[in-house]
Design a binder for these strands. Sequence first.
DNA 1: TAAAAGAACGTTAGCGTTAACGTAAATTAC
DNA 2: GTAATTTACGTTAACGCTAACGTTCTTTTA
Lengths: 336, 336
Amino acid sequence: MRRKKSAKIEDVAEKASVSIMTVSRALRGVEGVSEKKRTEILKIARQLKYVPNSNARSLAVANSNLIGISLPTFSGEVFAEILDSMRQTFSNAGYSTVIDTTEYSRDAELKWVQRLLSWQPAAIILTGIDHLPETRALLKASPIPVLEIWDYTREPIDICVGIDHFEAGRVIGCHALEMGYERPAFVSTPRGHDIRADARLEGIRAAYRGRPGADVPAARPSVQNAFTTGFDGTVELLRARAPDMIGYLNDHMAFGGMMACRQHGLSIPNDIGIVGFNALNLVSVLPTKLTTVATPRRVMGLMAARNLLARINGARVKSSEVLPVELIAGETTRRS
Amino acid sequence: MRRKKSAKIEDVAEKASVSIMTVSRALRGVEGVSEKKRTEILKIARQLKYVPNSNARSLAVANSNLIGISLPTFSGEVFAEILDSMRQTFSNAGYSTVIDTTEYSRDAELKWVQRLLSWQPAAIILTGIDHLPETRALLKASPIPVLEIWDYTREPIDICVGIDHFEAGRVIGCHALEMGYERPAFVSTPRGHDIRADARLEGIRAAYRGRPGADVPAARPSVQNAFTTGFDGTVELLRARAPDMIGYLNDHMAFGGMMACRQHGLSIPNDIGIVGFNALNLVSVLPTKLTTVATPRRVMGLMAARNLLARINGARVKSSEVLPVELIAGETTRRS
DNA sequence: TAAAAGAACGTTAGCGTTAACGTAAATTAC
DNA sequence: GTAATTTACGTTAACGCTAACGTTCTTTTA
């Protein structure tokens, strides 16, 4: 494929009557060029609209300033926020981010990791800790820093920053227990879709262990969008199980659930308690304050970016960081 | 920076007792290799965990399979959906996407374009048509295909796919007029932040031209999140202007506005009409159906990706495509 | 003032891949 | 059966950049 020839480093060198190497040094800001020449070279480069060739550079130094990030999905505020806070830090440090979504498929994740490795990236970020064994092996064997974010494990591929989803579930369960709810239920995603959902459900069950309601039934409607998923899952639970409290995977689902309860003539929080997750933006304008669990997404992103940059620069960093979550008691679980 | 040496094409060649070139051909699936050798080479490559070096490849062929995408922000469903639908098409076609967000800053956009060009990308996608003159010039001068998405203009940098935001505003205005509202208002973003917001406002004004209410006041609260922005903007308008209809930049803002109206004891749609934008997921679970404007985001993404791929492959494609929007009349503007 | 040290450059040799061209063997044509 | 094709490879020369080492000239040291 023919392309218009753009200015190369050689053209700049010729015009400035210096060697290629001097231009390279001047442009990168490394030592060994007099101030006079440097400013002149920069001027000429600008005149010629010189754009460095990252491919050549990366080939020469055997590593690029790309950071690969893999997310399950773009939908929802959660990953968008985590991503945002990370990206800005990287961008400021001169790294570009290559992003892909896996739609919760571990096979898709593996394929992406393979493709990404061909770019000799500076680092790779994966969401969660649930990967194919092959993916783990591939990354373990590579010298590239790997960060797992959002989940927590004591045995990360390389380093990780996240929250403990089981613990988060337990916090929800304890709160429900305290408020006197006896038949908790949970609206989740299809089985095997998202291990975090299962971890939280287990957390709730752990809180109720040995008491009535400890089985904590779960609805697993097919995923469309969070609002209707929450709505449908609630309808399903109300019909079959008559729960007096429902936990949700996130606040959007919880809102859908509130609408469903309302339509069924149930009063919140007396007939039924509602607990969301993540403390999303939506809750700030709701007339009834939603009980939810605040997750430190922006802090997590910043810490992840900071740790990873340190790791890239060869510093030793703590391999696993757990961040605390906080239950925010609202009006959807306060029994009068 | 030292890195563990990974298998190169040479290692594969040696082990297979063929030349480097034969391996290259076998791996890329081009002609000139016997079936027997090809399968053997592929097997050996897998054994050796060979990962091709994209930097070297891109340098040799003077172009990469990266596609750069610039978005204003990740927050909100809108760009996430457009992005998602494009990305999948590209991914299937073997392209990786490098993504950056500009936070509505044209300077940030320019910097990103400059950085991106150093990767010799296969194409560049920008959101909207509002760029610095320098950005336009840079891209116009480059041989790289450029796609502008979400807005529509008859004079794109290269090609564009979008909706006509002025027309969308006009549609909203006409509907409000038809429903008998006489003092329309609009909740927007800070001035100069997003030209699409202004285009829609002008559209509403055009619909009311020559009638009472044609000035259409706008609130421009500082941006935090869509829900509270809608809430705050509404409070501001209600206090100062006593409008009988409010249009919003999107459904999330409209929802915030509905909450504010409710708190002010106003009844929707009789005291005040509410019109959102984009037909976001939220509206499907609301007990009161929101009047909104459906935008074809997924179709737009698919069409954009398809057109751009065709353009990359040298085909001639229509330079500008406008997609239709549709007003969905709900219960928030139906006067009884 | 001569020798040593440092600053400011230039030269050489890759980085891992592919395009373009060369060459030998296998196939076809007549 | 020989010439003309075609197939299946191998060789050579980039692609644009940088690390490592050389060279020249200037500055410092004793």
